[in-house]
Amino acid sequence: SKTSNTIRVFLPNKQRTVVNVRNGMSLHDCLMKALKVRG
């Protein structure tokens, strides 16, 4: 089974995003990807 960790990230202006960290990806990469999608 694939394991994925879901991390809630609290952003300024009362924004919130959820990042799924996959195996083999660093938290930083996942964060940058999530913020790019939002931006």
Rank of each mutant, 00 (worst) to 15 (best):
L11V: 02
K36Q: 05
R38L: 04
T17A: 03
L35A: 08
R8L: 06
N23H: 12
N20K: 15
C30G: 07
L31A: 08
K2T: 09
S1I: 13
V9E: 00
G24C: 13
N20E: 08
M32R: 06
N20Y: 10
S1Q: 14
R22N: 12
R8G: 02
N5V: 09
D29Y: 09
R22P: 13
P12A: 02
V19L: 14
G39V: 06
N13K: 06
M32I: 11
S26T: 14
S1L: 13
L35P: 01
H28P: 02
V19T: 05
T6P: 03
G39E: 06
S26C: 11
V19F: 10
V21S: 08
V19I: 13
M25K: 15
P12L: 01
K36D: 08
V9G: 00
H28L: 13
N23T: 11
K2G: 11
N20I: 14
L35M: 14
S1P: 15
V37W: 09
T6M: 13
L31P: 00
V37G: 01
R38Y: 08
N20S: 09
M25T: 15
K2R: 11
Q15E: 09
R38C: 00
N13D: 07
P12M: 08
T17N: 04
L11M: 03
Q15H: 00
L11R: 01
R22H: 10
L31T: 09
R22F: 05
Q15K: 04
V21L: 05
V18I: 10
V21M: 03
N23I: 10
V9K: 08
S4C: 12
K14M: 10
T17F: 08
P12R: 02
D29R: 08
D29H: 10
R38Q: 08
V19E: 08
K36S: 14
K33D: 05
G24R: 14
G39D: 13
S1N: 14
L11Q: 00
L27M: 04
N5T: 14
N23S: 13
R8S: 03
V37L: 12
K2Q: 11
N23K: 13
L31V: 06
I7P: 05
T6V: 15
A34P: 14
N20D: 04
V9L: 03
T6L: 15
L31Q: 01
S4D: 09
V19D: 01
R8H: 03
N13G: 05
A34G: 12
V19A: 10
C30F: 05
I7N: 01
K14E: 10
T6S: 07
H28C: 13
C30W: 01
K36I: 06
G24V: 08
N23Y: 11
N23D: 12
S4N: 11
A34S: 11
V9T: 08
V21I: 08
K33N: 00
M32T: 12
A34E: 04
K14T: 05
N13Y: 14
N5S: 15
R38G: 02
I7M: 06
S1C: 15
S4I: 12
L27Q: 00
S4T: 15
T17R: 08
N5I: 05
F10C: 02
K2E: 05
N20T: 09
G39A: 06
I7V: 07
M25L: 15
N5Y: 07
V18G: 01
R38H: 01
N20H: 11
L31R: 00
S26R: 09
S26I: 11
K33E: 02
L11P: 00
N13C: 10
T3S: 06
T6R: 07
V9M: 00
R22C: 06
V18F: 04
I7D: 08
K36T: 07
T17S: 15
R22D: 04
K36N: 11
V18A: 04
V18D: 00
R22L: 10
R16H: 15
M25E: 05
K33M: 08
P12T: 03
K36R: 13
R22G: 10
K14N: 12
S26G: 04
G24D: 12
G24Y: 08
L35V: 03
K2V: 06
S26N: 09
M32L: 12
D29N: 12
V18T: 05
V18E: 05
S4R: 15
T3I: 15
V37A: 04
L35R: 00
I7F: 07
S4V: 08
M25V: 15
H28N: 12
G24S: 15
R16C: 03
S1H: 13
N13S: 06
T17I: 01
R22S: 05
L27P: 00
M32A: 10
F10I: 00
T6A: 05
M32K: 12
S4G: 12
S1T: 14
H28Y: 11
K14R: 09
K33I: 00
H28R: 12
V37M: 10
V19G: 02
L27V: 14
L31M: 05
R16S: 04
I7L: 15
F10Y: 11
T17P: 01
Q15P: 02
N13I: 03
F10V: 02
T6K: 04
V21G: 06
Q15R: 02
D29V: 09
S1R: 13
R8C: 03
T3P: 15
A34V: 02
N5H: 12
N5D: 06
G24A: 15
Q15L: 00
K14W: 08
I7S: 01
K36E: 04
H28Q: 13
K33R: 06
M25R: 14
G39S: 13
N5K: 11
S1G: 11
V21F: 08
P12Q: 03
K33L: 08
R38S: 03
V18L: 02
C30Y: 02
N13H: 10
F10H: 10
H28S: 10
S26D: 04
C30S: 14
V21A: 13
K14Q: 09
D29G: 11
V37E: 00
S1A: 08
K36M: 09
M32S: 08
K33Q: 03
K2N: 10
A34T: 03
D29E: 07
K14S: 08
I7T: 02
G39R: 04
R8P: 01
K14I: 04
L27R: 01
K33G: 04
V9A: 14
R16P: 01
M32V: 11
H28D: 12
R16L: 03
T3N: 06
P12S: 01
K2M: 13
N5G: 08
K33T: 02
S26H: 08
C30I: 08
C30R: 02
F10S: 06
N23C: 14
N13T: 05
V21E: 01
F10P: 08
M25I: 14
F10T: 08
L35Q: 00
R38P: 02
L27K: 05
F10L: 04
G39C: 08
R16G: 03
T3A: 13
D29A: 11
